[in-house]
Design a protein around this nucleic acid. Sequence first.
DNA 1: ACCCAGGCGGGCG
DNA 2: CGCCCGCATGGG
Length: 290
Amino acid sequence: LKRESVIQIPTSCFSLRYTFESANPLTFFGSYDPADNSVSYPVGRSIIKVRSTGSSKKGKLLIMEGPPSARREAISRFRLDDDMEEIYGKIATDGFMRGAVSRYAGMRLTLNDPWEAVLCFIISQFNNVKRIRRITMSIVNRFGAYITDSEGRAVARGFPDSATMAEASAKEFRECGAGFRAKYIKEAAEYCTNNLDIYKLSRLDYPELREELMGIKGVGEKVADCIALMGYGKLEAFPIDVWVKRTMERIYFKGRSMRTSELRSFAEDKFGPYAGCAQQYIFWHGRNSA
DNA sequence: ACCCAGGCGGGCG
DNA sequence: CGCCCGCATGGG
């Protein structure tokens, strides 16, 4: 019997719950258990479970169960090496941002597998959070490879890779509830299997990466920025969706209607290299306080 | 019934 | 370029 490893690491300024709930890829294919404040999600052929203890004076403990790689995976996935003092200092520069950072203290961006990010954010377009999760889970449950326990019993499914999904038809994605996005999913799966190795794009800088990603059908400016941010960790990426646009117009432009290009350059000037982190707080706080 | 959702592609001027 | 439209589907 293979014994799963349990690792504890101290964390500071980290909220597992806010991080999970804030509509990032983990929200769409992971699961959160409020009973023990834990998040479980598939990585390869394993399930990783991460539990965060209550606050202590020395910070919280993060307890991980899973394969030996669980520690490294969780540190990467939840960006635990980020210096939140530094980041908050750079983005909490006005009343709204201080309020957002205070209300959702410890909410982190997540860093996900690029294909996970491509699929989740294609599904996200012109959609709502609840339905994004239902569609994503439906696809995982239909196409993901079984994950088995030590006795060979299937306990869950992994995130399906692009090659597996490229063999499926748009009709099957429509049956998962994807609607008009089904054809984008089909084409993206084919493109990322046959024409573009998205795992080799990590070496590109943000502008180059953005252009490459926008070569995928169904990936425009906003979705490309989400993928750059949450699939490649480009913190300067600033995705502008309806909530970010509305909130920025309300807070910074007296309710005037602004072009996306104007909001982008405004954010670049105001938040610089941490614009993506600021964006997550604008999005989530703006949406939940509307 | 009507409006909206972490937008995008295509067509038009 | 910028702007406008249709788009699948389900919840408020």
